[in-house]
Design a binder for these strands. Structure first.
Length: 463
RNA sequence: GUCCCCAUCGUCUAGAGGCCUAGGACAUCACCCUUUCACGGUGAGUACGCGAGUUCGAAUCUCGCUGGGGACGCCA
């Protein structure tokens, strides 16, 4: 039985990188009929918050990453880590270290100055000196001094690191709280994790963890390190890159299936497939086709995918989803044309719910044209045609075909080219030059409103 | 600085020695459609980082260089 997990630390929202790691881990479990476990690594007492836990849960729920077990919290398992650490000390595989933080800082600084890789020098490893008073010791792992650690990474292939590069890492802090490298090992062991799928930034931790597994006499899980996601500029993803939180994408009007599809395709591929469903992802997913190098996040491609999904989304669902965006604009869709009809007219023109709502406001509320647009389109020469159009529209049976006939008749009667009349008409009724076809737009806005807006705007024409 | 990993169009990628005069997608540009803007359709330009090998043959294998990313905490 394959068991994977996602083990975030609750020190912020669920960001794009974490979400993709979770997605891969989830997809791997689902693909193999295994279990996906959620574990909250909250051992950083300073930075962990309940809000962050909630934010991560929310993000995962929005993306549809359902877990089979958990969430488990490491802080509820501290006795367990302490017991194992104590056991390692008793077996001579770990020891207490009484260095102060200042002492360690000093040591690292000196090493850096010498151009060495900063690492603990093992001064308490086999020390017989008396513990200094008043220092709460940490428990350090006795890392093997010789040989090398090798593993077959499920995405990167074989990786080997010499033990000479590793130092004696802290297992348990002075206050008895485990460090990351110790907590993960015990938990992955206790939770029977078979495949540790995590971010690239943990590659260097893996050999340390493997040594702990070995000291415990445990069987190793498989490790797979998925590459990082970089910002559009190739830099590490940070607040500076705008939307980094998964939930921000919801708030910006993206559909979760679009983000899932995009994230899945970023750093993983299945031939030429670009757009695929969650089920297809589960069916196709494998670690072998995960890319080995970091990928840049491309907002344009996400937008394109979102547009693809919006095109085929059920209208009632889109209506529900777009409602908050109208609310944010203080635009009520209660009066005016049916929202479903508006959505169906506009859906292929928008690549996000945000854009959809923006494009729809003039159906519900008059949008004043800019002076520049008026100047450009309200010519004295078209005024007679516009007045004529107004008159004829007043008495027409209000449907698209009839409206179209009237427009064509006026164009003919005044010897105009179509855009010469259609553009000012657009600007008058919608305040914009970019709308769906004018007859469909007018039909939907409604006769009364169209005529009212026309008559108001007629006053803006030069005499 | 030390260690680890990586390297195909601007971006995401296909590619497991001959199927590659390197394929797809986003973006860009052009044309078509058109009652504006979109959508849609058609097409174009654009890549195997460099240098040595191995081989009858290399984007694919080896080595070096260069470039990029990651790590070096009583953070995770």
């Amino acid at each position: 039985m394959i068991r994977t997990r996602f083990a975030p630390s609750p020190t912020g929202y669920l960001h794009i990188g974490g979400a993709r790691t979770a997605l891969f881990s989830w997809a791997y479990a689902r693909k193999h009929g295994g279990k996906f476990i959620l574990r909250v690594e909250d051992t950083d007492l300073e930075r962990s918050t309940q809000q962050s836990v909630q934010a991560i849960l929310d993000g995962m729920q929005w993306l549809g990453l359902d877990c089979d077990e958990g969430p488990f919290y490491q802080m509820q398992r501290v006795e367990r880590y302490q017991a194992v650490a104590e056991q390692l000390v008793n077996e001579g595989k770990a020891y207490r270290c009484y260095c102060t933080k200042e002492e360690l800082d000093q040591m690292r600084e000196a090493q850096r100055a010498r151009g060495d890789k900063p690492r603990y020098d093992g001064r308490w490893r086999d020390s017989l000196q008396k513990p200094p008073p008043g220092v709460k010791p940490v428990i350090r792992f006795k890392n093997p001094e010789a040989g090398e650690v090798v593993w077959a990474d499920q995405v990167k292939g074989p990786i080997s690191i010499s033990n000479g590069e590793l130092d004696d890492l802290v297992l348990l802090r002075g206050d008895g709280v485990p460090t990351y490298n110790f907590g993960v090992v015990i938990d992955d062991l206790d939770m029977n994790i078979t495949h540790v799928i995590r971010g690239d930034d943990h590659v260097n931790n893996t050999p340390r963890q493997i040594n702990i597994y070995k000291a415990l006499g445990a069987t190793l899980p498989k490790f797979g390190h998925v590459p990082m996601i970089l910002g559009h500029d190739g830099e590490r993803l940070s607040k500076r890159h705008g939307a980094v939180s998964v939930m921000q994408y919801r708030d910006d009007g993206f559909l979760p299936e679009a983000l899932v599809n995009y994230l899945a395709r970023l750093g993983w591929s299945h031939g030429d497939n670009e757009k695929f469903s969650r089920d297809q992802l589960v069916e196709w997913f494998d670690l072998a086709h995960v890319s080995k190098s970091p990928a840049r996040f491309d907002p344009d491609k996400l937008l394109w995918l979102n547009q693809q999904y919006m095109r085929e989304a059920e209208t009632p669902r889109l209506a529900d989803l777009v409602q908050p965006f109208f609310a944010a604009d203080q635009c009520s869709t209660d009066d005016g044309p049916a929202l479903y009809a508006v959505i169906d007219l506009l859906r292929t023109r928008a690549s996000s719910l945000r854009e959809l709502a923006d494009a729809a406001v003039f159906f519900y509320r008059p949008l004043e044209a800019s002076a520049a647009l008026r100047a450009q389109h309200y010519g004295a020469d078209v005024r007679p045609a516009v007045e004529d159009l107004y008159k004829r529209l007043s008495s027409v049976v209000w449907n698209r075909a009839a409206i179209n006939d009237v427009i064509k008749a006026v164009v003919g009667a005044h010897a105009l080219k179509m855009p010469k009349l259609a553009m000012p008409l657009r600007v008058m009724v919608t305040g914009s030059t970019q709308t769906p076809s004018i007859d469909a737009t007018l039909e939907l806005i409604g006769k009364e409103t169209v005529l009212a807006r026309m008559s108001a705007e007629l006053k803006q024409f030069p005499a």
